[in-house]
C-alpha cells in the first residue's frame, strides 16, 4: 500500500531497510511480556512478525487486549476487529472492555509501548499525523491519547515523503498530535532519538551515510561507539 513511500523522489539516497526490517528493528526493542499498541498501517506489520516466544500482549484501543493474528473464514466474527476495523483473532488470556477502560489503560500508563505512523516528527519529539490544513483531515482517533499515555512512544515512518521531503524536522510544520512525546523514531534509514535540540543517531541501515538523512548537521548527533 505504501511501498513507494520508501523511495524519495530524487532516489539519490539508499532505500535502507524494508518495512519488514523496520518492524524487526522495533520488535528487538520490545521487552518479553510487554503490552503493545499498534497504530493503523505500517505498524501492523509488527504483529505479523512478532515471534510467539516473546509473549507480547497486543492492545487495540477499540476494546481488546491479547490480539493474536488473523481469523480463518470459519472462525471470523464481525464483532471481533482491531482499531483499523480489520478482522482479528485473540489468544489465550485475552480480554474485552469498553472504550473508557481501554483509554484508561493508555492514559493511566499501563501500556508499555505504542508504535504509530507519522507525517512529521521533530527534534523535540513532537509528532504530527492527523491533518494537513485545507487538504486532508483524518482525525486524530486515539493517537493523541496514545502518545501522551504509553510508557514508550515509537514512531515508524518512511524517512522521506512521496515528494522527497525529509519527515524528520527541526520543528513540525503541521498541526501537532503531541508535543514532546516521541521517544524513538524508526525510519527506513535508521533509528533516531529526539533529544530536544537534535536527532541522536542510534543506528543506521546498511549502506546509509549521515549525509543521506536529509537532516542538517546542526540537528544531527552522531555518537561514535
Amino acid at each position: 500500500m505504501v511501498s513507494n513511500e520508501n523511495q524519495p523522489a530524487g532516489a539519490e539516497s539508499p532505500a535502507g531497510w524494508t518495512q519488514q526490517q523496520m518492524a524487526d528493528e522495533i520488535i528487538a526493542m520490545i521487552d518479553h511480556g510487554a503490552s503493545l499498541n499498534l497504530g493503523i498501517g505500517m505498524p501492523t506489520l509488527i504483529a505479523e512478525r512478532m515471534p510467539d516466544d516473546k509473549h507480547i500482549f497486543i492492545h487495540s484501543e477499540n476494546g481488546v487486549h491479547g490480539v493474536s493474528g488473523r481469523p480463518t473464514r470459519e472462525t471470523v466474527s464481525p464483532t471481533l476487529i482491531n482499531a483499523g476495523k480489520e478482522t482479528i483473532s485473540i489468544g489465550a488470556g485475552a480480554s474485552f472492555f469498553d472504550s473508557a477502560t481501554s483509554f484508561g489503560m493508555i492514559r493511566g500508563g499501563h501500556i508499555d509501548f505504542c508504535v504509530l505512523g507519522g507525517m512529521e516528527v521533530d527534534v523535540e519529539g513532537s509528532l504530527a499525523n492527523w491533518m494537513i490544513p485545507g487538504k486532508k483531515v483524518t482525525g486524530m482517533g486515539g493517537a493523541m491519547d496514545l502518545v501522551n499515555g504509553a510508557k514508550r512512544v515509537i514512531v515508524m515512518l518512511a524517512h522521506f515523503s512521496k515528494r522527497g521531503d525529509c519527515k524528520l524536522l527541526p520543528q513540525c510544520q503541521l498541526p501537532l498530535t503531541g508535543k514532546g512525546v516521541v521517544h524513538t523514531v524508526v525510519s527506513n534509514l535508521g533509528i533516531f532519538t529526539p533529544t530536544g535540540n537534535s536527532f541522536r543517531v542510534e543506528k543506521l541501515a546498511a549502506g546509509v551515510q549521515p549525509s543521506d538523512l536529509g537532516i542538517a548537521d546542526e540537528y544531527l548527533e552522531i555518537s561514535q561507539p
Binding site: S102, F103, V137, G139
Partner: peptide, 18 residues
C-alpha cells in the same frame, strides 16, 4: 465537513470516551 454542511468537532478518542 470541508464544504461546511456539517459542523464537525474532532475529539481525541480517549477524551471522547471519558
Amino acid at each position: 465537513m470541508l464544504s461546511g454542511q456539517v459542523d464537525v468537532t474532532l475529539v481525541p478518542q480517549g477524551t471522547f470516551s471519558e
